[in-house]
Design a protein around this nucleic acid. Structure first.
Length: 423
RNA sequence: GGAGACGUGCCGGAGCGGCCGAACGGACUUCACUGCUAAUGAAGGGUCGGGGUUGAACUCGACCGGGGGUUCAAAUCCCCCCGUCUCCGCCA
């Protein structure tokens, strides 16, 4: 939810942001109208109600003899109040719905345009060169007895898989390396619920344009989260948090579920795009002034991870038209995937400024002791998809894979993953 | 799954349908005092929204788990939902 005072005092900021995103500017005008209508209805209700309150005080003080008379008089007023209240409530709902359609105000540095207009901020690492016929991550995974898509499909359907043996170990190693880094940086580890109530899913903004990508349990009316961001954003919903001592940093560890509706036929091979995976997600509550710096810091941590894993990557400043509704700016880090001859997203890091927190009612006390809406920033620190880049980048001619040094402590010192005959 | 009790402000804990935004205690903040961070005394506070204003003062409305209802008037009465606790059963 945007700051409604922008709607009232500075709508041009909203219009400009909508243009940058390629959204319909009429949405802003509609919201302005709906907001004005709500405030008028609210004022009408409140003045009637104030009137009634005065009258009630009279009734209460009145002599029993005239009391019945007074009550008879105020009855009609009570009816009016009730009607006005309903009108105000409806107007408020309309205004809220209209305002909700406005996506977060894009930050000034964000490149305009659609997904093709991203800006590459920097690249790191040489693209790996091979003097043999390279195998893709799935072929490698199968040779290593690490990834089993066929049995995944047998048990759960398309886009499901088993990680076993060194595959399971490798994923845990990546996650644990991330956790170690997070702990060193002062993040609080959190294992989150992966089923959440509708209001939380709604509050985090995932029920907007991406609603179809979210699993919904109809019978229980609960949602499976596609990232622990959802639960971590909900963690401090309707709270006034203490940011006096600096930002609050969480590292959420969870399984993530995505229906991938609308991506049929895309990335059908391997574990690039799957319905279920694990992820360590950084989630920071900060003051709005600190949000941009926190955002940069998350990217730094991610780059450190990728560098230690020996991956070649680029950092991308995502264009306005490709931002999620809650994000004011987003950096993606994409790793080089040799068999695809392209970069693929391994991390996504969003500065949601106060947009998400406003919806969820997360505030803090500023230096004047007044409550103010917090800012939230989130980004990936480790996830299953990284296996693809690691396997492909570090493969050798015989199908074995060198384990990046940083991961070895988490794999019992294992240096090389070697193909097995195991079925 | 069955039975019961309860959900009030930062915490504990009162609350007769109007005098309750809410007693009382603690915590907290400020001031005073005691030659130290301790004790004592005094004062002060919530949240959300509308109007207003330099986002002050001021003012109006709302908020006692959530949502409905009764009433001129609801923290107080009624209904539904959610949550917590206790007992029984069941499963580990």
């Amino acid at each position: 939810m945007i700051d409604l005072s922008l709607l009232r005092h500075d709508p041009e900021i909203l219009r400009a942001s909508q243009r940058a995103r390629g959204n319909d500017p009429q949405i802003v005008e509609d919201a302005i109208t709906a907001d004005a209508q709500w405030r008028q209805a609210q004022a009408e209700y409140e003045s009637l109600r104030a009137n009634q309150n005065l009258f009630n005080a009279k009734v209460k003080a009145a002599d029993p003899a005239v009391r019945a008379e007074l009550i008879a008089q105020v009855k009609e007023l009570a009816q009016q109040v009730k009607g006005a209240q309903q009108r105000a409530a409806q107007a408020q709902q309309r205004a809220a719905q209209a305002a909700e359609r406005i996506e977060n105000v894009v930050l000034a540095d964000v490149p305009a345009g659609d997904e093709s207009n991203f800006v590459t901020l920097r690249t790191h690492g040489e693209k790996p060169q091979f003097n043999f016929e390279i195998r893709d991550h799935l072929e490698l995974g199968e040779m290593l007895g690490a990834i089993d898509m066929q049995r995944g499909a047998k048990v759960s359907g398309a886009r499901f898989y088993f990680l076993r043996g060194v595959g399971a170990l490798l994923e845990l190693a990546i996650m644990n390396l991330g956790l170690q880094k997070a702990l060193a940086a002062g993040f609080i580890p959190v294992i989150t619920p992966t089923l959440v109530k509708p209001e939380i899913m709604h509050g985090t903004g995932f029920l907007g344009e991406h609603a179809a990508e979210v699993y919904h349990l109809q019978q229980q009316d609960m949602y499976l989260t596609g990232t622990s961001e959802v639960a971590l954003a909900g963690f401090h919903a309707d709270e006034i948090i203490d940011l006096q001592g600096g930002s609050i940093r969480y590292a959420g560890w969870s399984t993530c579920y995505r229906s991938e509706a609308g991506s049929h036929g895309k990335d059908t091979r391997g574990i690039i795009r799957v319905h279920q995976f694990n992820k360590l997600e950084m989630f920071v509550y900060a003051t709005p002034e600190n949000a941009a710096v926190e955002h940069e810091q998350l990217v730094q941590m991610q780059e450190q991870m990728l560098q230690e894993l020996g991956l070649s990557y680029r950092v991308v400043d995502v264009a306005a038209g490709d931002l999620g509704s809650s994000a004011a700016r987003k950096f993606d880090i994409e790793a080089w995937i040799p068999t695809q001859n392209t970069y693929r997203e391994l991390t996504s890091t969003s500065n949601c400024t106060s947009y998400q927190a406003r919806r969820l009612g997360t505030r803090f006390r500023n230096e004047n002791g007044k409550t103010s809406v917090a800012a939230t920033v989130n980004g990936t620190l480790a996830t299953t998809r990284w296996l693809t880049a690691i396997l492909e980048t570090h493969q050798q001619a015989d199908g074995s894979v060198t384990v990046p040094e940083a991961l070895r402590p988490f794999m019992g010192g294992l240096r090389v993953l070697t193909p097995t005959a195991a079925k």
